[in-house]
């Protein structure tokens, strides 16, 4: 009896896993097959494709109305710049909160905590009106520009990053910077020469999470970037399947696949660090 229930439990477990795996892989299978399907739909009469062609990929690179490479460049610019700057600036703030004692520190931390739970696009209407104004004076950082969007991303990621990084920095032993101080290093030197290299791995993970987050961002980008050449991959590809171009799934699938593959590889190869970062908040809480 006991072995029987154990056996059925085991079968149940495997069944559960395999159902989940099919559930997981189904859309991935569909996107791969439709990227090679020249008819432009996500599945024709059968799920197994009859014709294979590279037409959808050619559209991305040969059609002047579809500046796919420019979109990729824009996305990478925003994601890299946001990740690098926000991690650098965020680390400086986190360093002050973690290592220095000053008036208003606790209040500042509490304020930071509250700010970081508010997604910045809740103030969407205000940001829009504000950047419309900025545009009339400085077009390069106003509405419709990548520079302006970057500034908004930076502001939005500041709270989260500073808060997250402070958690990491607290785990780096104080003795190291104390030793450096005894040797006569200034605060800035401790930060830049001792501390930055030490924290490099966690900074890299934070930067990666920030990179993925920016790459995924859709709301602000779609509202902000109207011109076809300043779009990001997310906004650009969405146009294929939105109202404007009709339901043109082939190029969308091809473009998505090309953009997703490097990210998935990056994610899977760094998964151990990323997961460490995710669960840290939980297990320490």
């Amino acid at each position: 009896m006991a072995t029987n229930s154990l056996k059925s439990k085991k079968i149940g477990s495997h069944l559960f896993i395999w159902v989940l795996i099919l559930f997981t892989l189904f859309p991935i299978y569909v996107v791969i097959t439709s990227s090679f399907n020249p008819t432009g739909s996500l599945a024709t009469s059968s799920l197994i494709p009859q014709i294979w062609s590279l037409d959808n990929y050619k559209v991305l690179f040969n059609n002047p109305a579809v500046p796919y490479l420019t979109w990729v460049e824009n996305s990478i610019f925003l994601a890299v710049a946001n990740a690098a700057i926000s991690v650098f600036v965020g680390t400086a703030s986190a360093f002050a909160f973690s290592r220095m004692r000053f008036k208003g520190r606790k209040l500042g931390l509490q304020a930071l905590l509250l700010v970081q739970v508010f997604p910045s696009f809740l103030a969407l209407a205000a940001i829009y009106v504000m950047m419309e104004r900025v545009y009339t004076v400085f077009p390069a950082i106003g509405l419709g520009s990548l520079g302006g969007l970057l500034l908004i991303y930076l502001g939005g990621s500041m709270g989260v990053n500073a808060w997250l990084l402070k958690g990491y920095i607290d785990t780096i032993p104080m003795e190291l910077d104390e030793a450096a101080r005894i040797d006569g290093a200034s605060s800035f030197q401790v930060f830049w020469i001792i501390f930055f290299p030490l924290a490099a791995p966690v900074l890299a993970v934070t930067a990666l999470l920030s990179f993925i987050g920016t790459f995924n961002e859709f709301v602000l980008a779609s509202l902000f970037l109207q011109d076809v050449h300043s779009r990001t991959v997310a906004v650009g590809l969405q146009q294929f399947v939105g109202q404007q171009f009709g339901q043109n799934w082939g190029p969308f699938a091809a473009g998505s696949l090309l953009a997703a593959i490097p990210l998935v590889i990056l994610f899977l190869s760094l998964q151990r660090f990323i997961i460490g970062g995710l669960t840290q908040g939980a297990t320490k809480g």
């Binding site: 896993i17 989940l20 795996i21 997981t24 892989l25 189904f26 859309p27 991935i28 569909v30 996107v31 739909s41 996500l42 599945a43 024709t44 009469s45 059968s46 799920l47 993925i212 790459f215 995924n216 859709f218 997310a234 590809l237 969405q238 399947v241 339901q247 799934w249 969308f252 699938a253 998505s256 953009a259 997703a260 990210l263 998935v264 994610f267 899977l268 998964q271």
Partner: peptide
């Protein structure tokens, strides 16, 4: 099983949207 977490979510959402399409979605097919 962790793949959905690694794929940019705006892509997967749009793909699902296409799959549930009435005329040429994979689910109905």
């Amino acid at each position: 099983l962790i793949l959905p977490y690694a794929i940019p979510s705006f892509m997967s959402i749009l793909i699902w949207a296409g799959m549930f399409n009435r005329q040429f979605g994979a689910i109905n097919a």
